[in-house]
Design a binder for these strands. Structure first.
Lengths: 345, 345
DNA sequence: TGTTCTAATGTAAACGATTACAGTATAACA
DNA sequence: TGTTATACTGTAATCGTTTACATTAGAACA
């Protein structure tokens, strides 16, 4: 049987109250008593029983992070920032990855709404908000939503400005002289950032007083857990009678798939076709040619999300009901150039 | 104030014991009473208070997963398997990523050894076992170690057989006729699987009654959190007076860096130089040429680690003190061919 | 009718901390 | 010397469950 606070109290010849005061760094303990307690703790190898403390204080020191998948560089970055912030604030992280599975979402929602499971929930969900999100947002556990917007509620939301990301890449390509620009997107109604990208894409065209060719916008529908058929979409695009001279890819990984398909078809980037990505993952710098992409502040998003959550937990309500849009920045590298009109119609 | 079991008991006109029995699916409750309790729970939106339950039962339903980093495909796969197993067994996951930071290791060790923080710890540590590992292994929290071996203790360990992985790739290259084969490895004394690879590499040479040229073995030393200078090592290798005709890369990501460097230098794979990887990550299939690599059962390792841990938690001591070596399998694709002696001396 | 058995339920004691409140000793001061 | 303030310490209630044990009611049986 491990030692309890009572054992420590006995050995140190003080009351449990004094031991507790030492444990929690309260002021009013004499140096002499404190020393005896510290010695007794070491002697008995006493460890506080967290369940008892939690029951008494009604706090868990734990925060849940709900993510769609762990195998994603942007989410990885966010989690790193979240963990840093958690450690700094003396919190611990409960990991819940749903992998787009409704059943798992339900399981986790049920768990997280139990009393004293966690002090707060950080939900990263670029997908259309599932039931689970609404349930949690309305529950009494502090809650912050990332990568999705929940209007008409007081739920704090943080998003990357993907209207801007698509706008910037598209605008850049239009400036280079491209007109037949393809957009490789995810299912917009289903996937929130995809909707934003669509909007940014169109906005850039509008600014040039142009209208994008609908045949050049391709959406991948309701994928199950990262198994998208991008290659099919890319090939279909290049098979068009008048193929695009540039492709705005959903993100860097998709852009790299464009690279692969182009290589197979003997197309040269950027000579034959220009490509842009999004996210600025590590390898986008090292591919040939280096990928022109958009840098998103994943680390900041994680940090800020945690900040929001902690404020809620501490009842500093200042930031409540906020939607925060994070700036993104075009990174020009070598995957785009002016269109070569000899190649294509 | 949220409802307690007592509120439910009152509303259902039964005792708290009966409510508890319903909550925990005990047999001896009449259908009639059960129904009243269920109704009362719904009526009051009652949620069990986990801290109280944990205090009483002395169980947390939580398992800690300690990892060096979250941004690694193999670890991602393992975690997915671990989470699946955890959900199936009604456990929840506490995430602790150390990122090779000793201070963080200490923080987490201190946290995890507190009473009723977690029911068990799953430690994934390919690095030389830090103090933290020993402390936890000897503590009284059930413990399983992955990717490292702890001899002379009863700690269950699970590892990929990287002696075999290096052996298989090297043997394959030797069979193709290569003799100047380079090994791009991590710091062996420091990084356990690197030691195993070294051994497998040499074993293959021995079998061919050959001795590897020490100039062709390159170790990257004590990296801080994934910031390895592989490109430097690769270039140094290719700058040798008599460069290698084949490279056994530490893993697929390193192999892909070899691809990049070779492309820059105008070297053709496999014509000018053969390359092998390890881990069989997703993109190794889609690069050009497809990478010859070794498939490791990351998913199985995660599942088994969890199995070991649960057995310990349930005091089924059968598997205690086991070291498990998981088989790996060479996957031949297009990145290797017989050496071209016209190119190199 | 009395006895025994069984199923269902209730009573109350834990589990191990925190903390409001009460108490005590000493110092300071008049 | 008595009063009061100060600094420390202790007592005991409390958090919300689970569960060993006691109790009750009814059925079965002699």
């Amino acid at each position: 049987m491990p030692a309890t606070i009572e054992d420590v109290a006995k050995l140190a010849e003080v009351s449990t109250a004094t031991v507790s005061r030492v444990l929690n760094n309260h002021e009013l303990v004499s140096d002499e008593a404190r020393q005896r307690v510290v010695d007794a703790i070491r002697e008995l190898d006493y460890k506080v029983n967290l369940s008892a403390r939690r029951l008494r204080t009604n706090q868990t020191g734990t925060i849940a992070v709900v993510i769609p998948t762990i195998a994603d560089p942007v989410i990885n970055q966010m989690i790193e920032a979240i963990e840093d912030a958690a450690i700094a604030a003396n919190y611990t992280l409960l990991m819940c990855s749903t992998r787009g599975d409704t059943e798992r979402e339900e399981v986790y929602t049920r768990l997280l709404t139990q009393q004293t499971m966690v002090d707060g929930v950080l939900y990263i969900s670029p997908r259309a908000a599932p039931e689970a999100v609404y349930k949690l947002a309305q529950g009494d556990v502090p809650f912050v939503l990332c990568n999705y917007r929940l209007d008409k509620t007081k739920t704090p939301c943080i998003l990357f400005d993907h209207v801007s990301s698509a706008y910037q890449t598209t605008h850049y390509l239009l400036s280079l002289g491209h007109r037949r620009i393809a957009l490789l997107n995810l299912d917009a109604p289903y996937y929130y950032p995809a909707r934003m990208r669509q909007e940014g894409f169109e906005k850039a065209f509008t600014e040039f007083q142009l209208i994008p060719d609908p045949a050049l916008t391709r959406e991948i529908h309701r994928p199950t857990h990262l198994n998208y058929d991008w290659r099919g979409a890319i090939n279909a695009m290049l098979d068009l009678e008048v193929p695009p001279t540039a492709i705005v890819a959903f993100n860097d990984e998709v852009a790299l798939q464009v690279y692969a398909v182009c290589r197979e078809r003997g197309l040269h980037i950027p000579g034959d076709i220009s490509v842009t990505g999004c996210d600025d993952i590590l390898s986008s710098r090292h591919v040939d040619p280096p990928l022109t992409t958009v840098r998103i502040p994943a680390h900041d998003e994680g940090r800020l999300a945690m900040e929001f959550l902690l404020k809620q937990i501490r009842h500093e309500r200042l930031t409540y009901g906020v939607t925060l849009l994070l700036d993104v920045k075009l990174v020009v590298r070598g995957s785009c150039t002016a269109p070569n009109f000899e190649n294509f119609g």
